[in-house]
Amino acid sequence: MQQILNFILKNSHKLLFLLLLIIALSLTIQAHSYHKSKVISSANFLAGGVYEQMNAVSEYFSLKERNQELAIENARLKSLLFNSADTAALKLPDTIKGVKKVNVILSKVIHNSFNVPENYLTLNSGSKQGVKSDMGVINDLGIVGIVEKVSPNYATVQSILNIKSKINAKFKKSDHFGTLIWNGKNTGYAQLIDVPRLAQIKKGDTIVTGADSKIFPENIGIGTIYKIYIDDQTNYYTLDVKLFNDMTSLGHVYIIKTKDREEILQIEQETAQPNEQ
């Protein structure tokens, strides 16, 4: 016993180093390996509060652009409103018995990151406003990311500029779909993989979110095809997609709350289970 104590006291520096290094490495590995297992994140009182104060100062520098964006969005919505043929006969496609399938929560990006392979944003709304993890985040131009972790007042978002991100996407004109990923290189471009060679595509085609996604509603803009790579070994295309959004400058965003998500997930899980006899 005496010897063990002596050993610990003599090597306390080394042991403390090893202990702290192991803690830090396990946090790192956890953050890289699993979805939603981040032990520490900026969705907490301290980091969220600091970022909110910082944003309160810095948002004055971009007020002009934000106003411009909102005005353009308003004009687009107005033109939709004035051009709808007959409001009396209008049938909203995603409405059943007056129940809306999608709710939208307004939020603001208070911290943005785009300089590492795994990028996260911080938003200034949390569970008090009804935000839950795995909700989609969009803005007026297109998709932004998926909510990862939520605290009472803040939420972190896995940006589409994150090499762990995988989002179902399709072509606007045909219904061929693929998976949107990011290769960690350029902040203006994402990659669409697993697109079947049957699909008729050309440069400039629009990519939107697919119907297979339980997080985003269908037909939300993502970007346009910028470059087409043909792989001779497989029957799939890989495409470079130029994003509609400038991910380095984000202001107000909308959090999408799809009401059917749990129901779809549940029924899919039940189907996947083997039948009992």
């Binding site: 830090a24 396990s26 790192t28 953050a31 032990v39 520490i40 994140s41």
Partner: peptide, 13 residues
């Protein structure tokens, strides 16, 4: 710093 940058334990290590 990791907490503020959402980076797990990278800076700590």
């Amino acid at each position: 710093i990791d907490m503020f940058t959402n980076s797990g334990g990278v800076h700590a290590a």
